[in-house]
Design a binder for these strands. Structure first.
Length: 596
RNA sequence: GCCUCGGUAGCUCAGUUGGAUAGAGCAACUGCCUUCUAAGCAGUAGGUCAUGGGUUCGAAUCCCGUCCGGGGUACCA
């Protein structure tokens, strides 16, 4: 059992017997002791002075004597003001180290028959342009919380809803028809998503020119936007598509295929994947049916112009449009359809949507609407909301071309890893193939760690130059320390030094005890699958652990120590730290190179 | 206007259910390659935790006000 739990129970008993007091759970505060004071675990006694009717020091003293008697792992205690500091004996930390060293699934809970099924939606791209930095944050967060949910004993289905229909793709289609000259990924060598994105930009260029011309001839801005020839043509394509016009559907399919091929490459490079992909073109009609059912059951209402609305003023929200006056569906309608389809396909216990925080209101409304429509799971949906990625130059706006393209960014990072490595003379003993694979791991480690280490809820600043830094609190620093530990273990093996799975006569330094303590604090298990902090907590934990290890062991040569229990202990400690760090980083989707 | 999220070192970020003297990295400066791999280590300097009140033994953390910023706010997704 964990030491804080043991102390908690002893404290409960002590308060009961000494002061006839039964505290509530959060009245007993057990923390780690400040690093510069002696002791390991601290019980805060201020909340009990009113029941002990004694000074904080005296109360702490009495509780200390009692609790020390109860818990065998307590070596001693000291009192500073109202803080009761316990020193835990070495045996406890070593028992924990042994467990962490031996157990292959240390820090995780395997899924079993009673596991909950968690569906996690992430990525959810539009098919009219390539992925950019904002999508990268989404994909990394989605993949990471899926991994964390898995390691917490859940069954996980990763899903992606592809926004494959609508006016945006029609714009690219129209531009390709007009100015494409038959250009394809095959004949141009371009990645499919980039090619389609190019025509989306092309459309916008012509559209803006047409608006300018119309305004010059006396139209208002609104009229011009409505009546520009390009826009009219795109709308017509959308109508044709909805009417299942063969030629239009064929073009739509072809261009979407180009995009999917491109996306697949990017997903693969990022190391993310999906168990089930939904397409909006297959779900929006279901949503429409559900909304119309709502109208007939009196849950929603229809105006004279035929538009359909939900009145959510009782829930403290506004009125929400569900179908336009021309009967076409909106974003919300589609999400209702997608939700229904998913729950038909899987017995989902918990639904998590990884979507940006600009849609907080959308998901608040979606939860209420699903509930009103009689879906029991509606109000329990979890919106994993994350902040925007900002650039030093300002906001990313795809139409203004101020986006950081995902593929370009990854390529750049790999090139920097390559250059750095050559400069430092690293990886020269590896084959070219092995080295390339390592560069990829380092580059993606840097990118992923940079994004995941910050609290997902906050907007983050992405400075391309700083992100490529491999020093300090970065992925490569953690990978580097890992690789060094691996190197020690390899050398130990080469020199025929066997690690004995026993820990006797070990003398612990303060630093080593600190490391042991941290091993027991691995945060890989969280209470909620959708815990919005967890990737960042794990990232910062790995950094702290590795930094402490580096600081201590930099000046201590393990291998040149004489064979002894102490050497054996240090090898076990190093090996365990490597194992835990690897596990933590893998939960972030970061691979760990054996050498670098 | 209303709703909502945020403001911590020059910059990027940590900071556990309220706990003891607020922590890292980057940038700047100073040392260290005979060490397990210098993608490293050690050190110096850098703070009115936006601001004013409140709650209490104790507040960066909880409550209220103000200022600044992001996002949303009925026919974009």
């Amino acid at each position: 059992m964990k030491i804080d739990q043991l102390i908690y129970e002893a404290a409960l008993k002590a308060l009961n017997e000494l002061y006839q007091f039964s505290p509530s759970k959060n009245q007993i505060q057990i923390n780690n002791t400040r690093k510069d004071l002696s002791g390991d675990i601290t019980l805060v006694v201020f909340p009990f002075v009113s029941v002990s009717k004694k000074s904080p020091e005296k109360t702490a003293e009495e509780l200390g004597v009692f609790i020390k008697n109860e818990v065998e792992y307590i070596e001693s205690f000291n009192v500073i003001k109202g803080f009761l500091n316990f020193e835990i004996n070495n045996e406890y930390w070593l028992v924990n180290l042994k467990e962490a060293y031996e157990k292959s699934d240390y820090g995780t809970v395997p899924a079993g028959d009673n596991s909950k099924l968690v569906m996690i939606e992430y990525s959810s791209p539009n098919t009219n342009k390539p992925l950019h930095l904002g999508h990268i944050r989404n994909n990394l967060l989605g993949y990471s919380i899926a991994e964390i949910a898995k390691s917490n004993g859940n069954k996980v289905v990763k899903t992606n809803i592809v926004n494959d229909r609508g006016i945006h793709i029609c714009k690219s289609m129209y531009a390709w028809l007009m100015w494409g000259n038959g250009k394809t990924p095959q004949n141009s060598g371009m990645k499919g998503d980039h090619l389609v994105g190019e025509f989306y930009v092309e459309f916008d260029k012509h559209y803006k020119e047409e608006i300018a011309k119309l305004v010059e001839n006396g139209a208002t801005k609104e009229e011009a936007e409505e009546n520009a020839p390009s826009m009219l043509a795109a709308r017509e394509l959308l109508l044709k598509w909805e009417a299942k016009d063969a030629e239009t559907v064929e073009l739509w399919k072809t261009m979407n295929e180009w995009v999917y091929e491109g996306f697949d490459k990017t997903y693969k490079m990022l190391g993310v994947d999906f168990d089930k992909i939904y397409y909006e073109s297959e779900t929006y009609l279901i949503g429409k049916e559900e909304v119309l059912r709502g109208v007939s059951e009196g849950i929603f209402y229809q105006l004279e112009d035929n538009s359909v609305w939900a009145d959510l003023t009782e829930e403290g929200l506004d009125k929400k449009l569900l179908l336009r006056k021309d009967g076409t569906s909106v974003y919300m309608t589609q999400d209702i359809g997608t939700a229904k389809m998913r729950y038909n396909d899987f017995s989902i216990d918990k639904m998590v949507y990884v979507v940006g925080n600009e849609q907080n209101y959308h998901f608040q409304v979606l939860a209420v609407l699903l509930d009103k429509l009689g879906f029991g799971w509606g109000k329990d949906l979890f919106h994993f909301s994350y902040g925007m990625v900002e650039l030093p130059s300002g906001k990313m706006k795809s139409r203004e071309g101020t986006v950081v393209d995902a593929d370009d960014l990854i390529d750049d990072m790999i090139q920097v890893a390559r250059d750095m490595s050559a400069e430092l003379g690293k990886l020269e003993s590896l084959t070219e193939e092995e080295a390339e694979s390592t560069f990829r791991m380092i580059a993606l480690g840097a990118l992923k760690y940079f994004i995941l280490k910050v609290d997902p809820r906050k907007n983050m600043m992405f400075n391309p130059h700083e992100s490529i830094d491999f020093n300090g609190n970065t992925g490569p620093f953690i990978q580097y320390t890992y690789a060094r530990i691996k190197s020690v273990l390899r050398k130990a093996e080469e020199n025929n030094i066997k690690i004995i799975n026993q820990l006797n006569n070990v003398v612990l330094s303060e630093k080593e005890k600190e490391l042991l303590k941290n091993i027991t604090l691995f945060p890989g298990i969280v209470k909620e699958a959708g815990d919005s902090y967890s990737p960042a907590i794990i990232a910062n934990y790995c950094y702290d652990l590795v930094k402490e290890y580096n600081q201590f062991y930099h000046d201590h040569s393990i291998l040149s120590e004489p064979d002894s229990d102490q050497k054996n202990f240090r090898l076990i400690l190093s090996s365990t730290i490597a194992k835990i760090v690897k596990k933590g980083m893998n939960l972030l989707g970061i691979e760990m190179p054996e050498r670098m």
